[in-house]
């Protein structure tokens, strides 16, 4: 491994580790989105009916809408605190490629906000009467999908950093871009619940993850530079 490579790897690791550590200190940052996720899923049986057959029909959609909304909620914490305490400015001045550091930041954010949703998914799926053998596909689809949401969301969060009324604007920017994730994710879950192969939809989710992981950090770094001007 070249010295440049280790330098980059070390910088990214430091950013990643710092964010994870900070999250342990501000634990509600991790728990609130999960609680929100479970609560949205609770709303649907209350609003519609507790009938098992109906719940089973709407389960994929409910899980994905809830996941989308709660990851949107979590985006607030991705960059805002770092902007306020000046960390973000330090990162842009660090001499390391900003896109790479933001990649590490987004990855940490995914681990802290996306993975808890993946882990909470079996609970929600069971509560919505989804068959047990679909839970594996649901978790895999959520694993890929929340990754895409985090990376797309990072661009939106970076773009709204310089504005005052951030949160509503952030949803307005991110939701249209996130719709393909919703479509493919809900479809994969739906297919799995019907006992059909969901490989196609999962692969499309994976392709979107690959695309967003490579392109979004570049866009996010440009956006951060614009916001910090």
């Amino acid at each position: 491994m070249s010295t440049l490579g280790t330098g980059l790897g070390r910088a990214a690791w430091l950013v990643f580790e710092r964010d994870v550590r900070l999250a342990f200190r501000r634990w509600e940052q991790v728990t609130h989105p999960v609680v929100f996720f479970v609560m949205i899923a609770t709303l649907f049986p209350l609003a519609l009916s507790p009938e098992t057959s109906l719940l089973r029909d709407i389960a994929p959609g409910v899980v994905w809408v809830a996941a989308l909304l709660s990851s949107l909620l979590a985006l607030e914490t991705l960059l805002r605190a770092d902007l306020e305490d000046g960390t973000l400015e330090q990162l842009t001045l660090s001499g390391q490629p900003l896109g790479w550091l933001l990649f590490a930041k987004t990855l940490a954010h995914w681990v802290l906000s996306g993975l808890p949703l993946v882990l909470a998914a079996p609970l929600v799926a069971t509560a919505l009467a989804a068959p047990g053998d679909a839970v594996g596909v649901l978790m895999l689809a959520l694993f890929l999908g929340t990754g895409v949401l985090s990376f797309i969301g990072a661009v939106g969060a970076a773009l709204t950093l310089g504005t005052r009324r951030g949160s509503v604007l952030l949803s307005l920017l991110v939701l249209p871009l996130a719709m393909p994730v919703l479509i493919f994710g809900a479809r994969a879950t739906d297919l799995a619940m019907r006992g059909e192969p969901a490989g196609g939809a999962l692969m499309l989710l994976g392709a979107m993850l690959a695309l967003s992981v490579t392109l979004a950090p570049i866009a996010a770094s440009t956006a951060v530079r614009i916001s910090l001007e």
Partner: peptide, 25 residues
């Protein structure tokens, strides 16, 4: 200009994906 412009560029990358996904759906 620059922030919204970046959003437009990100959007145009997404437009084919959105079209494809919506048609597939």
């Amino acid at each position: 200009d620059r922030a919204a412009g970046l959003l437009a560029v990100v959007g145009i990358v997404n437009v084919p994906i959105i079209h494809f996904s919506v048609y597939w759906w």
